[in-house]
Nucleic acid binder design. Structure first.
Lengths: 121, 121
DNA sequence: CATATCACTTGCATTTTGCAAGTGAAGTAT
DNA sequence: ATACTTCACTTGCAAAATGCAAGTGATATG
């Protein structure tokens, strides 16, 4: 289900970078094709990992949000980022520092921000 | 690098099920084609996640082993298994119970068994 | 009203995957 | 010693997934 090149990157962008719209996903530096992005979003919705709704402030946009099942991937993402930081190219240094300082606190923050952005909808 | 359907499953089998040979990977219930398996093993080696050496007790076999970089994926795997147990089909119940009881202890056990199997080579 | 932005879709070429059937080296049984 | 089996692959080809470029239609902006 997460066994493809893009799904986890989309979730990472939602969780850690706060991406919410089609265009924001496209602008993440890894260049995903628009048809593939549309397909992955559709699949993530069908798996129950994200949901979507129209943007109330701009009728052209759709907002994509993580579900509970989606935000529950935060520990997986965190461990992946930490592993990559140790063994691959260096990613977001500030984020990695926060994760290392206090992993539980970091995860609580991720989940709190998620809950807040949901309640605003 | 882990963005494909099979690489993480191979690593999971090595880490959690103790698979070490080509045939053992094939016998994991997810049916991977032999050409793809050979390709993924080659790529995992080139990424430095696993190594391989001949089996001293059977000249036909090759033994595949996780490197330090590979075993460092244990926390990622653990979180994935826990997430899947909560949100997808139920996997290995006994393993999940162990992980939940004491994650740190579980991870220490994984790493200890890895170190022991390495020193025997 | 004209132009731009956004979230897509379509058509087609390229790449990756999967399947079935080998191959060669080494081990096992008779 | 010879035949048969096991093991770790490779090869050839079909099918599926991916990537690219160029739309499309709805909404927003100047």
């Amino acid at each position: 289900m997460l066994g493809d090149r893009w799904s986890l990157l989309i979730i990472r962008d939602m969780m850690l970078r706060g991406s919410r719209t089609f265009k924001e996903f496209l602008d993440s530096y890894e260049r995903i094709a628009t048809n593939i992005l549309a397909d992955r979003l559709r699949k993530l919705i069908s798996y129950g990992v994200i949901t979507t709704e129209p943007d109330p402030t701009d009728g052209r946009k759709r907002i994509y949000l993580l579900t509970e099942k989606g935000i529950a991937l935060a520990p997986v993402m965190t461990e992946m980022v930490l592993w990559a930081a140790d063994h691959e190219e260096t990613g977001n240094q500030a984020l990695v520092r926060l994760m290392r300082e206090d992993k539980e606190k970091f995860l609580a923050g991720v989940r709190r921000r998620w809950a807040e952005s949901r309640s605003r909808e």
